[in-house]
């Protein structure tokens, strides 16, 4: 492991320690923030369960498969908010506080991922993982399916993170604000809780190429459930890599053209 990566990881761990110390210093409040994050995830579980109780559910998707999809979406959306509290970043950009991070010798990716932790969202991540474990324990997957799903999921998480970074910086550049990105991300999270197939061809293409959040939840679950063949998996992985490359170029361009709100 190169010293650069080791240093970055060490710095990340340090920022996490201080963030958590700050979070739990108000124990009573932190418990409620944590519980609210769990409750939000659990209500999605209740919603899916009720749908399958009163109907046959979404075509082509059994209850447990739907649970897999919603749990992965919860992990992804909560995970992104945990690493990047969108509202705080937008506020920081607007108020000029963001500039203080630029004086440090860190990559822009590191600044975004380490400096604005949405601590309470960890409750959603944990609840999502528990729901996923429950659904996965009732289903049987091949080892290759698991590996493929994990590979797409890892790439999908990267796509989701860089996509949100692009949204935040793009919104700041165009509107000099970005509070709405938080709302938008919440809506996109709701869209990806359900199979993209229900939105028709246009909707599926939109959530794959223009708003590529489908890579983080829908395609991994499809791969896990064996709904995509080996060729399809390779195509998705290659597409994901291409999208990561494209999004990172856009983000770096936006970041370089950043001008302070206070300057």
């Amino acid at each position: 492991m190169s010293s650069g990566i080791r240093r970055t990881l060490h710095l990340f761990a340090l920022t996490q320690v201080y963030t958590w110390k700050s979070f739990i210093s108000y124990r009573f409040q932190s418990v409620f923030w944590f519980l609210s994050s769990i409750l939000q995830a659990l209500l999605t579980f209740v919603f899916v369960s009720v749908i399958y109780q009163v109907s046959t559910g979404i075509p082509g998707w059994g209850y447990l498969q739907m649970l897999l999809l919603t749990s992965v979406t919860i992990v992804v959306t909560s995970g992104v908010i945990y690493l990047m509290d969108i509202y705080n970043i937008s506020e920081s950009l607007l108020m000029g506080n963001f500039d203080s991070f630029l004086t440090k010798p860190m990559s822009p990716y590191f600044v975004f991922l380490s400096s604005f932790t949405g601590t309470s969202a960890i409750g959603g991540v944990i609840t999502g993982i528990i729901l996923f474990a429950y659904a996965a324990s009732q289903l049987h997957f091949g080892v290759l399916n698991l590996i493929a799903a994990f590979a797409i999921f890892a790439l999908g998480i990267l796509i989701a993170l860089i996509f949100v970074m692009v949204l935040i910086m793009g919104s700041y550049k165009i509107f000099r604000g970005g509070g709405w990105v938080n709302w938008l991300f919440s809506i996109l999270g709701n869209i990806t809780k359900y199979p993209l197939s229900i939105y028709g061809v246009i909707g599926s293409l939109l959530m794959t190429f223009i708003i590529p959040l489908g890579f983080a939840s829908y395609y991994p679950v499809e791969a896990l459930s064996g709904k995509i063949g080996a060729e399809g998996i390779i195509v998705i992985i290659l597409l994901a890599i291409a999208i990561i490359f494209l999004l990172s170029r856009i983000f770096e361009y936006l970041f370089k053209s950043y001008s302070s709100a206070m300057g």
Partner: peptide, 30 residues
């Protein structure tokens, strides 16, 4: 701008529900 975006986002949740419930009703055949 905030007003326009808020209005657009308010309408997104029921649109998602429309897609979800259309799929459910079509699959259930009821």
């Amino acid at each position: 701008m905030n007003m326009v975006l808020l209005m657009s986002f308010q309408i997104m949740s029921p649109i998602i529900m429309l897609f979800v419930w259309t799929a459910i009703y079509l699959a259930s055949g009821v």
